[in-house]
Design a protein around this nucleic acid. Structure first.
Lengths: 240, 240
DNA sequence: ACATATCTGTTAACGACGATATTAGCCCTG
DNA sequence: CAGGGCTAATATCGTCGTTAACAGATATGT
């Protein structure tokens, strides 16, 4: 394993390693071949030819072809995130969720071959994991507002599954049968499944959540009386 | 185009053409190879070898490899329909919809490689079209009962998309992260989007407030790290 | 009944693919 | 100037999908 001569990632654009530059060039031509001629068009020979090197060079940079495709998926994903990044909207986290879902779906519709590469076959890939983690981050803001109907991990899975089904189904339909109402219906179904209409907490911050929980604590039966007694004490401290 | 010597499909099992019998044998071994070793294990040589012929024989029967895979997908689909066919339930078409969705999802979870072959890549295939048509048939009964919220075609697309997202997402998750609540949530989201039935609003209880407090826990400093750790565990239990 | 056509499966081979071992060129350090 | 270590090119292997040419079996037509 060679040492990265640019560990901090400073000046990544101009000062990147030659190795990193050729990697980028190869990934770019691979994405181009992918979107132009489908997955079967991405052969080691075609990629090497379009990038101006010999096929064995790919194996030194990506290990094998699967590594190349993984790098392609990862790069396409990060490029999408960088281009369409939306700032947090503390005013309306539900609107933020809608916008984020729309952006993810639009990315799939705009890059069908890349999307099929990333989410076509069901495998636990890095891209899949990172996508869920980024979702979890935003879901936390929903939870903090008391707007979450389900657990955070489950919410991320629901959001991902509806978007994935939306993109793949849309792309499977012949053009005249594609109706934007499908996307709208799936998005709103996702919103209903994930969020709740009336927030569970009114006041912001940990104190508000603690007071809301303390008020509803008698309804539960998953904690023993002793646990509940100690929890109540902590909630009182948090409420102050 | 040769004339089908058995157009009525009578006595399909014993009286089938020799051609039809070898086709079935080849499809069976192809399905076996598919579920055992994934899509890459289905090579013309491996299939021919397992079926006791030489590779060129496949081309007389299926045209090319894509034709073979298409026949595999189609056969797996019809076999699934024959095995799990459910009769119409005029008493409760919404329950019929739930059962049908569950069956479709279970089929995907039970035959992951076959499902990925049928619905992994977004293409307008015969299997996709027939699946939607069969759905439309049942949706008509919902419409007749006045329970449909959207157009029939759109309803079929919503049902398909939620099931597709459910299966692929479920199969993408590592085993410990697979929660049946995902399937339940997606199914009920589908019901809400497709039918006029009001969503069964379950009483929130302390779960929402617990999730809100858990999301805001890092913001506080009145609890010690040890207290916070135990509190997090309790909040997770309350959130479920 | 016999010749003919069709079907079915074989052997052999082609071109392209993913992948690797080996060899030649290059730069940097001493 | 010498030599080690990295980079890149050459040549090659085994496998893949696919096709051509051919042989036996079967059905068909007169």
């Amino acid at each position: 394993m060679p040492v990265d001569p640019n560990p901090a990632g400073l000046a990544a654009e101009p000062g990147a390693t030659a190795r990193e530059q050729t990697r980028r060039r190869i990934i770019d031509v691979a994405i181009d071949l992918l979107e132009r001629g489908g997955r079967d068009a991405v052969t080691t020979r075609a990629v090497a030819d379009a990038a101006g090197l010999q096929p064995p060079a790919l194996y030194r940079l990506f290990g094998d072809k699967e590594g190349l495709l993984e790098a392609v998926a990862e790069h396409g994903f990060t490029r999408f995130l960088a281009a369409k990044h939306i700032g947090p909207d503390p005013q309306d986290p539900i609107r933020e969720l809608r916008v984020g879902w729309d952006i993810a779906v639009e990315f799939g519709l705009a890059n069908p071959a890349l999307y099929a590469l990333m989410y076509g076959e069901p495998r636990f890939t890095t891209v899949f994991r990172i996508g869920l983690e980024l979702l979890t981050e935003r879901i936390r803001r929903l939870a903090a507002a008391g707007l979450l109907r389900v657990e955070e991990d489950l919410a991320a899975q629901i959001i991902h599954a509806t978007a994935r089904g939306a993109v793949l189904t849309w792309l499977s339909l012949p053009e005249p049968q594609r109706d934007p109402a499908l996307l709208h219906a799936l998005r709103e179904a996702m919103i209903t499944a994930v969020t709740t209409q009336d927030p569970a907490v009114q006041e912001q911050g940990p104190a508000g959540a603690a007071r809301a929980l303390r008020a509803r604590l008698p309804d539960q039966d998953v904690l023993s009386p002793a646990e509940q007694r100690l929890l109540t004490e902590w909630l009182d401290r948090l409420s102050a």
